[in-house]
Design a protein around this nucleic acid. Sequence first.
DNA 1: GACCACTACCTTGCGACGCAAGAGAGTGGT
DNA 2: ACCACTCTCTTGCGTCGCAAGGTAGTGGTC
Lengths: 111, 111
Amino acid sequence: MVPTQDVVLTQLRKGVVEYCVLACLRSGPAYGLELAERLSATSTLLTSEGTLYPLLSRLRQQGWVTTTQIASSMGPPRRYYELSTEGRAALETFTATWSRFTADVRTTLES
Amino acid sequence: MVPTQDVVLTQLRKGVVEYCVLACLRSGPAYGLELAERLSATSTLLTSEGTLYPLLSRLRQQGWVTTTQIASSMGPPRRYYELSTEGRAALETFTATWSRFTADVRTTLES
DNA sequence: GACCACTACCTTGCGACGCAAGAGAGTGGT
DNA sequence: ACCACTCTCTTGCGTCGCAAGGTAGTGGTC
């Protein structure tokens, strides 16, 4: 039985979405649904908010982002996430690792 | 707290190692430890046999590989794994998905 | 035969992450 | 009062990788 792309993608996302969120925050603070929209612009990175919010909690616990709650006239207050210095460092570690990893995968797939 | 590359890699491997094994089998059948060595040649793809053997069982159950046990004068009999037609198809699906996914990640990381 | 080193395969228990589904709470309009 | 919309968060589950440990077959040394 051949796998669907969806099944494959669910596994691939593991450990990646987290850092894509950090990358989205480099251009400035954003709130949850805003991040969900940005990531959904790509076709493969995010499927539901059930992934995003637990992930954002982790980022906050680890100190990679700081948060501020701001009232909105469009609904309930929004929680804005902002990249911290540590978050920036974590993102750099990831980028380097990602680079090494994809190079190894490419080599293996093409061999 | 900044993550170590090891911690990052453990997550990245999910859903990838499996297909790297299939890729290794394109050049012909191989047995478990042989595959472990090939994958360990890259620096990021495999850390222990505790990953490999359960993975090989899955491949066999899914019919992506077929196996033949062959006696060895160097120890216990070796189980050789050979890529099936379905395995080849699965690998192609993966390669296409991987390509889309890494493109999206790159875009996000560089934005 | 008793022992050891080496090769080779496999299992167990655990932790991390993504996900579908659903729930709750705040705003504004009818 | 009711509904629609926005925004946040939780629950239960499945998948995968991994360190550690276990089993078994071969050949060599005493």
